[in-house]
Amino acid sequence: MTSMQSAQDFDHQNGLEWRLYTGMLTTRLFEDALIRWEHEGKISAQTFPSKGQEAIAIGCCLALERGDAVIPSFRTRGAMVAMGITIVEQLREFVHSPLAAGGSRDAPHHASWPERGVMPGSTMIGGHLAMAAGLALAMQLEQKGEVSLAFFGDGTLGSGDLHETMHIAGMSRLPLILVCENNGWEMATPWQKVRKTQSLIPYAEPFGFATRSIDGNDALEVYNAARWARATASNGQPVFLDCMTFRAGLYSSHFGEVRGNVEKDLATWEQRDPLKRMAEWLMGHGLASAEELQRLTRQEEEGIEAAFNTVRSEG
């Protein structure tokens, strides 16, 4: 490929692995840009970066089908990306564009596009899980085989709503998929200080959930698990996917790093970065070259900047 080729050259690369890669890439670059714009004073919203965890959102949402619904956590920007909400549409909510579908009312990390399956999350940890179960209840009544999926962090184990939701969903056999982004940290508190096991599966199983613990940094494994989860939930058994991962970024763009002795873990998990691994997979299978991926990155960056300029010109 030469530098004269346009982004459309990548359109033929619409296989699953490419979509997983580009979804994660877009999410990473978009969040990087959001943090940069905030620091430059161009936007005022804080970002809860999903850096290192992008495979979970992208893998799960690409496994969904028309009519399914997803409720992101405050750290699942990738869900919006994978559900087809463009960067322009997402950015409109940040800057109170007159074209913002949600009117810039909800915090941008909870922005919703209900008609396209992206439902509003909740700032109340765990509150959105009951809403996801309610969506699943409606889907069960409608009998179209649709499923409802919600993301949340492992710190949500402390929320009563998680347990109430699992209690009801398990007994009612709701088509619900609960996806835990299990990064082992509750803000600055490591999981060992607040619970007995890192896995949340021991809590979910007795409620009647089908469970699977997966490598949340392997986009293909996430996707395959989510396809299984979708089929299982659609057939009347709720699913709990425990996605083991690591937060490579800050808790939020408003904080510096507050986790003690995290440097070694950061270095270890850097080797397991989901974007890097997917790039290696693509190159290892002859589906992309390093140059192509670099060019794609540049194009994505330019596209994100262009989106910001577009949105700013709307106001």
């Binding site: 309610g134 009544l141 409802s148």
Partner: peptide, 26 residues
Amino acid sequence: KERVRDTSISESAMVGMAVGAAMKGW
């Protein structure tokens, strides 16, 4: 019984679920 739903004594989730069902037009 699908429309007259018995659940556990989980008032917070009961209300949350009603909101979720409303998201689907119920």
